[in-house]
Structures are given as C-alpha cells and as structure tokens.
Amino acid sequence: PPSTLPAQPPLLLVPFTNHIGFRYIPHMIWSFFNERDRVRAGAEAAYALVLGQTRDFRGPNSWRSDDAPLQEEHNSTENRAVSGAQDSVQGGDLDFMLWSEKLFAPHSPLSSISDARKSYYSSLPSRLTAARQLARGEREMTKEEEKNPPASEVELRAERLTKESKWRAQEEGWNIVRPGTGVRWDERFRGVLKVFSVPKKEEGESTGTGAA
C-alpha cells in the first residue's frame, strides 16, 4: 500500500438522530415540537459548506477543551477495558455523535445466525443421503420428490457455500458495528482528511439584526 494518500474531498459533519421504533414514539413527539435545535444544526452545517472553510480531521486522541465529557468517559472506561470490554471512545472527530448510540439498545444477530446454522446442518445429512441415493439409482423418487425434485449433491454444496458466506458476512458485519468496537483508523489519514468548519466569531461580533 502507498505510504501517503492523495488529498480527499472535505467532510461535512451534520448532527442528526433518527428515532425508529415504537418505544421511541415519546422521543418523536418531543422532537416534533422541538425542531429548533435540528434547524440550527442544519443551518450551521450549510453555512460551513457555503463558506468552504475547512480544518484538519481530528484523529484518535485529539482531545479538545469541549471534549471534556468524552475525556471523562474515556478515563472511566479504562477499567472496563482491562476486563476485556472494548472502549469506543477514541477522541477527536471519530467520536462525532457517539453519545447517540446510547439511545438505542444493540440487537445482536448472532443468536439468529446460530439458530439458522444449527437448523440447516441438522437437516443437511438426510438431504445429502437422498441426493446420493437418487444419483446412484439405489431407489426411485417418491411422489413428493417427483413434485419437488430434491437438490443434487453439487447443488447442496453450492447451497452450503452460499449460506456460510452469508452467515460469515453477517458475523463480520456485526463485529464492525457492534457497540464498543470503535472506528478503524489509519494514520495515513491524519493531515489528509478535512472537515468543513464554521469560522469562530470575532469578539464583540453580533449575530442579531438591529432595529431599523
């Protein structure tokens, strides 16, 4: 891989939390009557985009003064990290909107994958036996098999490969997005990634409109 990366288009970070599910209906109602924060956040993001001013993307351990709550959480979770729990607080822009993940309970697919795999492999031997018996001419097809011909051994192998590929991809995907995993970071991105930012207000500058 190359030792350096080419310049990348700037990123626009827009805070937004999408409440989904019956249990979050109260949050939806509250949000419906409190849209000011969302409008302000969206307007500020659009303003930063129009101005075109950027800053460097803050990678891991790039703590700022307003990152104090995350710094405290980072320190408080070090003990859990010792016991094997992974800490998703990394610092900098990688923790953008990290707090919102606490609003949603994680739903692991691992148990469903395990049940599906167990059910499939429990029925596979009988299907494989039937396929081999029919291929060798050891018996004739039953009436049910004539209506729905069973899969051949080659088809069963292809089916198994497809299912295993799907299950392993789902397991790998869960390992990427599960809480506590954190974001994978490559140091080559440091100094290459940019983020749109709103310029700081000058001292004494007013954002209000004066009366005519």
Rank of each mutant, 00 (worst) to 15 (best):
D186A: 04
S3F: 12
I176W: 07
R190M: 04
V198S: 00
K118M: 05
A211Y: 01
T209Q: 06
F196M: 05
G21R: 05
K118N: 07
L156N: 00
E146T: 14
E187P: 08
T129V: 13
S197E: 15
E171P: 01
L124A: 12
P1D: 05
V39C: 12
F16Y: 08
N148M: 14
R160M: 13
R117I: 00
W99A: 15
G84C: 03
G191C: 13
K163M: 06
Q8G: 04
S206D: 11
A212I: 02
I113G: 01
W185E: 11
Q86V: 13
G21H: 04
I176C: 04
V50P: 01
W185D: 13
N75R: 14
A135Q: 08
V82C: 02
R40Q: 11
A85G: 08
L51N: 07
W167G: 01
W63A: 13
D37T: 13
F16L: 13
S83Q: 09
R190T: 13
S122E: 15
E101F: 04
D37K: 13
R23F: 03
S108L: 07
R38P: 08
V198R: 04
V177T: 11
T77R: 02
H107R: 11
L103K: 05
Q53N: 10
F104D: 09
N61F: 01
V14C: 10
P26L: 01
P1S: 10
E138D: 15
S112D: 14
G180T: 02
S111L: 01
A7P: 09
G91W: 01
R184C: 00
P125G: 05
E145D: 14
S111V: 00
V39S: 11
A41I: 06
A151G: 07
E146K: 15
F104S: 03
E205G: 11
T77A: 05
R136G: 03
G208C: 00
I20N: 03
G42T: 02
P2C: 06
K102D: 12
F196P: 09
P15G: 15
